[in-house]
């Protein structure tokens, strides 16, 4: 052992200065690099950055495809007993409860547009005369909360068949009396639990839950369940949606 060189701390430090400086330099550089990455991430500035936003939008579209592949057309959302219905069921919209549209039942007509053979508009009476079904399912909001509700109405796939919709088309779009709009994929539209809902908790759909007609899709998040529907259109051109156009994921399946 080189005993003589270890005479004191100072001597030891001097002897190894080069090595210590090298280690410190490497540490500083790598530390600085990771601190920079951290600073970059901690603000919301990055989301405002155009390139980052484009990447995030791209991944969101990839996630649309992933979800479409994951979607099993025969897998049913869990149904619950009536006793588990959430009371009171929450109201949610992009506006306040006081702004809920008042749709006149007598003059109401459901318009059909796009790739549909029989475009004759439907009245509420005609819709109510179709075979009805009901479900108690969980409504999940993109915000995170969920609530169990009971919806009744016409199975959407039956309705689409009846009016001669082109079920090979990609999208179904919805226009609403409150200027809301959204769209879903054909596979989800044909899912057995997707309903054109006319009732909530066995009563006529209340205004705040979408009178006179809403779409009930238990395999999608709440904002994909449009209320106050006035027109339905079948198309191959991506229709987007009120929230979707602002950055919310389009498929938004459950």
């Amino acid at each position: 052992m080189k005993k003589s060189s270890l005479g004191s701390n100072r001597e030891w430090l001097d002897a190894n200065r080069k090595e210590i400086v090298q280690i410190e330099r490497r540490f500083f550089l790598k530390g600085a690099f990771s601190m920079g990455a951290l600073a970059l991430l901690s603000g919301c500035d990055l989301t405002n950055n155009e390139i980052t936003q484009r990447i995030l939008n791209g991944v969101s579209r990839l996630n649309d495809d992933m979800q479409a592949k994951l979607f099993d057309p025969s897998r049913l959302a869990q149904e619950y007993p009536d006793s588990m219905v959430t009371k009171p069921f929450p109201f949610n919209a992009y506006y306040d409860r006081s702004k809920v549209p008042a749709v006149d039942a007598a003059s109401y007509q459901l318009e059909l547009l796009g790739l549909i053979r029989e475009k004759k508009p439907w009245t509420l009476k005609e819709l109510a005369a179709l075979p009805q079904t009901s479900q108690v399912t969980r409504h999940i909001c993109v915000e995170g909360w969920s609530a169990i509700g009971k919806w009744g109405g016409v199975r959407f796939s039956d309705f689409l068949q009846r009016v001669g919709a082109d079920t090979r088309a990609k999208f179904i779009g919805f226009k609403c009396a409150d200027d809301y709009y959204t769209s879903i994929d054909m596979a989800t539209a044909l899912h057995p639990q997707t309903l054109l809902a006319l009732t909530f908790a066995d009563k006529t759909l209340p205004a705040e839950y979408g009178f006179p007609l809403r779409l009930r899709v238990p395999t999608k998040l709440g904002f994909k369940n449009p209320k106050h529907i006035t027109a339905i259109y079948v198309t191959n051109v991506y229709p987007g949606g009120y929230w979707e156009d602002q950055g919310y994921n389009w498929f938004s399946g459950c």
Binding site: L41, S42, C44, L46, T47, N48, I55, L56, N57, V59, S60, N63, V142, E143, W243, Q246, G247, Y248, N249
Partner: peptide, 19 residues
């Protein structure tokens, strides 16, 4: 202490980074 600016942005980050 949060990332994304608003809910839609946060969801985009969350569902991109999860991969």
């Amino acid at each position: 202490l949060t990332l994304g600016g608003w809910l839609a942005g946060a969801l985009q980050w969350h569902f991109a980074m999860m991969w």
